[in-house]
Design a protein around this nucleic acid. Structure first.
Length: 901
RNA sequence: GGGUUCUUAGCUCAGCUGGUUAGAGCGUCUGUUUGACGUACAGAAGGCCAGAGGUUCGAAUCCUCUAGAACCCACCA
């Protein structure tokens, strides 16, 4: 048989095609059987399959297209040394939500990915790595070292980018950038030259934050202050030609080797007579002046400050004011140099400290040691205490750059979410100091400055001088942030692209880099593009563990997102983290919270499975979509419209967790819990056309739902979107039209009709529960109601498993019935023989107490003349309605209770 | 020292410009093989909205203070 078929196929291509179609039909039929749709959603394979499909079909690629409006995001480029952590998950899923949302709305969505060379962070890693290979950075040439860095970049730079793909991000990978790409590099250099020529960039000999680990200057922002339980040492400094001594207090005894003065407050009566005299600096023997400076706080310590101008910012300033000598006692490694007495030379600063203290103690000059909690600045990357250090560095004066950048945020051209970050931004921007942009490193953008060998003259251009042999190039590189501040503008390579995509629409980043990056990007945008870099900035929450502690490697409380994705699925992780992350507050995350997303995915999956199962028996027929519409259809359509509208509003306000909650609740509560149940009787109706129309409509609503969730959960929605209908090759939910709000479908009547049904059904279920009547046992219900439709009655019958339901205006209360009163309806469930009178009495009494409590409240309000006079009429009317309603219910319940006895 | 934010059910949080019977999820308790889902369904219990004042007819919501928590900025040796 097979052989024959094969022969026929071989000779006749037409038959081959027929055969193929036949096989396809067989297969698709098979796919439709329940056995082929697993009960639980299995994300692993699905995610891989669709990501490949999206990439193969270039669904995320964007080109300039002036017929469409662009929607642009540039990714905060992760460091090439980085690995994916939960912060990235939150950050990137938010960007993806907006990009996907806008793409489905018809925008030309462009999300530019890339990585940052992360000058100091990478260089320290490479140095460490080389050490393990027995190579010292100092022993190899700059070029050799850079070679190692580039190798490192090739090896590790792509890891995080690959990891991001597992999250399902819809970046335009054809646009992947790196901050040291040729084009980008040249733009960084151009910016430097431009600012140098404008006089904003200059070289200066100043006190900077020195990182002894990396042996480079760092900026103020890279200094992290940490609380340290230290000591305050008190020492005696003998006054020259006198019996007197001055007691100084210090947290850093070792710096006394570089002291060149002792300061007191000019108003301090204790020391006034000593001003102008000198002390003999112990150990060193140097004679140094006692002088007055109002900076000194009389109250603190002894009121006497030892001054080390070379190693403390304040001392440096005081030294300048008072013409003190500046003696540097440290090498760049923070080891004592030849400016200290011989026995103290070549010591690490902490060893030097111990030795100085010991020596002073021996000399009898140590007064006391107090415990003292103070803050010590640490180098962000080097992770060692920074040393205030005098050196030649390049600085950028920020005065002119700040002005427009401050304005655009104040005026709301750049919008911060949450808004309160504006204050922080303004505060920083108004107190900003010169930015130290030079780093004594190799890995980075080398400063485009050449010094003339003879004259020392500075040459600063984008290209080297013509007679470059007469020059030496500056060896420093730029601070990483002095390159990434151009990210929003220079990831676009041509003027045409910049004109189209810039300014970008949204930046999503952590508040920890508001100064490092956000502020500086705005400055760069205003300076070089004369326009803002982005319209909205979303500051993400900080992810903490379930106890509120920061995620950290040492605590071991930082789950690997890749593992979480393996266990729960990317969709589940994405959804969960956005569901629990409120705007502007910390998020307490733990892995088991991902059950929220996993269960939700499973719910969506099973709703789809249910529809597909029914599609085997009942025809899906588009022409019947708008036929046989009943109140439950009008209700769910109305609810859907509300949801669409509210989701749009929430996303426009950057309330992402709100948006996700709205979608969650619509799908789970409205669609699954009520609508599917409501539709069952008609779906299984004898009338095939009714069944068909119900199912067709359900599929339509389901597809709208899938599109609503898609930005949050791209994988499962693609899988189901493809499963519920025949799709063309290359088609994707990613590029489908996002649901559009249709006001005409809002239906308040249907909504209140369903609400009545829901209240009655809930009351009946409550009675079942309290009375111990299992759902398997049908009940009889008698309803005393003014207006209740046949549709409503049928719905109640099916949802509460009611066998006989009698409804009408004039109905007498039956005997031995459990009762409830809901929205003016009397509900009776005759349970003669079954009903426990005491239980029923307790039930009614409880409800009575509740209602009476409410009535007291409303009566109090209404008897208050001020309230009735001053409150708006609708508010008063509302209270009156409530009063009438509750009084009515109370009356009815009382009569029921009376009959029970 | 300055600034920002927070304090609502056992836990994590919603409650927008003051008028609601103060909500949800998780957890707890009870029940459930009804033709998608036990990663589920149904029901229930659980709250002086941190404390004290004030504004107002009316405050979880606005103002002040107090207490506590977190973060950011700042040169107290």
């Amino acid at each position: 048989m097979i052989v024959i078929a094969f022969l026929i196929i071989y000779v006749n291509p037409l038959i081959f095609i027929i055969f193929k179609v036949y096989v396809k039909i067989i297969l698709s039929k098979k796919m439709q059987t329940t056995r082929e749709i697993p009960k639980a959603y299995n994300p692993g394979e699905v995610e891989k399959k669709w990501y490949k499909y999206w990439e193969d079909n270039k669904l995320f690629h964007s080109e300039v297209d002036t017929t469409k409006k662009p929607y642009t995001i540039v990714i905060p480029p992760p460091n090439i040394t980085g690995i994916l952590h939960l912060g990235h998950i939150l950050n990137n899923s938010i960007q993806d939500i907006y990009i996907r949302y806008k793409r489905m709305m018809g925008f030309n969505a462009c999300w530019v990915p890339g990585t940052d060379h992360a000058s100091i962070a990478t260089e320290s890693k490479v140095v460490q790595y080389l050490k393990t290979k027995g190579i010292e950075k100092d022993d190899i040439s700059r070029e050799e070292f850079l070679g190692h860095c580039r190798e490192w970049q090739k090896k590790y730079g792509g890891i995080i980018i690959e990891q991001l793909r597992t999250l399902g991000v819809s970046c335009d990978w054809e646009r992947e950038r790196f901050t040291m790409d040729d084009h980008y590099y040249s733009k960084v250099i151009e910016a430097f030259v431009d600012l140098y020529k404008k006089g904003y960039i200059f070289k200066g000999h100043r006190m900077v934050n020195w990182c002894p680990a990396t042996q480079s200057a760092i900026s103020d922002e890279e200094v992290i202050f940490q609380n340290v339980n230290g000591k305050l040492w008190h020492f005696r400094y003998p006054v020259k030609d006198s019996e007197e001594v001055l007691v100084v207090a210090t947290t850093r005894p070792e710096t006394m080797l570089g002291d060149t003065g002792v300061a007191v407050n000019p108003e301090d009566e204790r020391y006034k007579h000593l001003i102008g005299k000198t002390v003999i600096l112990p150990i060193v023997g140097r004679e140094i002046p006692i002088f007055a400076d109002s900076y000194v706080d009389k109250e603190f310590g002894t009121g006497v400050v030892k001054i080390t101008p070379a190693h403390d910012v304040n001392d440096y300033e005081m030294g300048k004011r008072n013409n003190l000598e500046v003696i540097n006692i440290f090498t760049p490694q923070a080891v004592t140099n030849d400016n200290v007495p011989e026995e103290f030379r070549n010591l690490d600063r902490y060893t030097a400290r111990d030795k100085v203290v010991k020596k002073l103690e021996e000399l009898g000059l140590l007064v006391k040691i107090e415990d003292y909690a103070n803050k010590v600045g640490y180098s962000q990357r080097g992770n060692v205490a920074i040393e205030p250090y005098l050196s030649e560095q390049w600085f950028m004066n920020m005065d002119e750059l700040v002005k427009p950048a401050l304005e655009v945020v104040k005026q709301g051209k750049v919008n911060f979410h949450p808004e309160h970050w504006v204050k922080t931004y303004e505060h920083w921007m108004t107190g900003i100091k010169d930015w130290c942009i030079s780093r004594q490193l190799f890995w980075g953008h080398r400063i485009p400055v050449w010094y003339h060998k003879e004259t020392g003259e500075i040459y600063c251009e984008t290209t080297p001088p013509a007679d470059v042999e007469n020059y030496v190039q500056e060896s420093d590189v730029l601070d990483t942030w002095a390159s990434s501040w151009l990210w929003a503008q220079d990831v676009f390579k041509t003027k045409e692209e910049q004109a189209y995509y810039y300014p970008t629409d949204l930046l999503v980043t952590g508040p920890d880099i508001i100064f490092f990056w956000v502020a500086r990007m705005i400055m760069a945008g205003m300076e070089f593009m004369n326009d803002i870099p982005f319209k909205d900035v979303y500051f993400t929450s900080i992810i903490r563990d379930e106890k509120g502690r920061k995620m950290s490697k040492s605590l071991g409380n930082s789950p690997d997102p890749i593992d979480v994705i393996k266990d729960y699925g990317a969709d589940a992780l994405r959804f969960t983290i956005n569901y629990i992350a409120p705007l502007g507050q910390d998020v307490l995350f733990s892995v088991d919270k991902c059950e929220i997303g996993r269960n939700f995915a499973n719910k969506i999956w099973n709703a789809g499975r249910y529809l597909l199962m029914n599609a085997q028996k009942t025809e899906v027929n588009e022409s019947l979509k708008d036929k046989h519409i009943d109140f439950s259809d009008r209700w769910i359509l109305s609810k859907l419209q509300r949801t669409i509208k509210e989701v749009n509003t929430a996303l426009d306000k950057f309330e992402i967790n709100n948006a996700s909650k709205l979608i969650y609740s619509f799908i789970w509560n409205d669609f699954c819990d009520w609508f599917i149940e409501l539709s069952k009787p008609r779906l299984y109706s004898q009338d095939k056309e009714v069944a068909s129309s119900v199912l067709t409509r359900a599929f339509w609503i389901y597809e709208e739902m899938l599109k609503l969730v898609n930005p949050f959960m791209p994988f499962i929605t693609e899988e189901l979107w493809q499963a519920i209908k025949e799709r063309k090759d290359g088609e994707s939910i990613c590029t489908a039209q996002y649901p559009v709000f249709n006001e005409a479908l809002l239906d308040e009547q249907a909504e209140s009709d369903i609400e009545l049904v829901q209240s009655i059904v809930t009351a009946l279920r409550n009675i079942r529960g309290e009375m111990g009547v299992p759902i398997t046992k049908p009940i009889t219900v008698i309803l005393k109601a003014e207006n209740i439709s046949e549709d409503q009655i049928n719905a109640i019958k099916s949802l509460a498993r009611v066998e006989n339901l009698t409804a009408g205006k004039d109905i007498d209360k039956p005997n031995g019935a459990a009762s409830a009163v809901v929205k003016g309806c009397d509900i009776f469930v005759p349970l003669e023989g079954i009903i426990d009178i005491e239980v029923e009495k307790a039930r009614i009494e409880k409800e009575l107490t509740r209602l009476e409590g409410l009535l007291i409240g409303v009566n109090k309000k209404l008897s208050n003349a001020n309230f009735v006079d001053k409150a708006p009429i609708d508010v008063v009317q509302n209270e009156k309605n409530k009063k009438a309603d509750w009084e009515n219910s109370i009356e009815k319940l009382k009569s029921i209770l009376k009959d029970l006895i």
